[in-house]
């Protein structure tokens, strides 16, 4: 093996790349920690119906979510089994909806206030009564852009 032996005494030592993975991991962790998906904890059943003509909702920042469905088992003692509305992290009544719309509007930039879309995430087992009531409330609050949340039906 002496054949391959170099008499390199003047060779510059290779730069140690041992710390590179640490840097990459640090980046990885930084992104993992900093990208918090602001998603509320669901307190109602929320199996959305399927539809074939769905479109994606653009501009997530302009969407305000309204969840409707049967309360989850742990809340059924306090709230019963009839479909309820969930706004942010709590149950709400119909009357609170206009205040919610106003606060959602307040939290957006002035130029965006009229382009907020209300994303109705309604459980498929809910009857139309509560949905119609919500729509009436939204009309009264003059927040007319509505998205009936549904998942894409596989063909």
């Amino acid at each position: 093996m002496a054949k391959f032996k170099k008499d390199g005494k003047r060779e510059t030592p290779a730069i140690s790349t041992a710390s590179l993975p640490d840097i990459v991991f640090m980046l990885l962790f930084f992104f993992m920690v900093s990208t918090t998906m602001r998603e509320v904890a669901l307190m109602v059943a929320n199996a959305m119906p399927q539809a074939s003509e769905t479109v994606k909702l653009e501009k997530k920042s302009l969407v305000s979510n309204i969840y409707v469905g049967k309360p989850n088992p742990q809340y059924q003692g306090a709230y019963g089994t009839e479909p309820r509305i969930q706004l942010n992290d709590r149950f709400a009544t119909l009357e609170e909806l206009s205040a919610f719309v106003a606060s959602e509007r307040e939290s957006r930039k002035e130029e965006d206030r009229n382009s907020i879309t209300n994303n109705l995430k309604v459980d498929r087992n809910v009857t139309m009564g509560i949905v119609t009531d919500i729509k009436q409330e939204l009309r009264k609050a003059n927040s007319l852009r509505v998205n009936y949340g549904s998942t894409k039906k596989p063909h």
Binding site: E53, L138, R139, N147
Partner: peptide, 8 residues
């Protein structure tokens, strides 16, 4: 999110 968009 996806769904059917409507204007009330």
């Amino acid at each position: 999110d996806s769904g059917l968009y409507r204007r009330l």
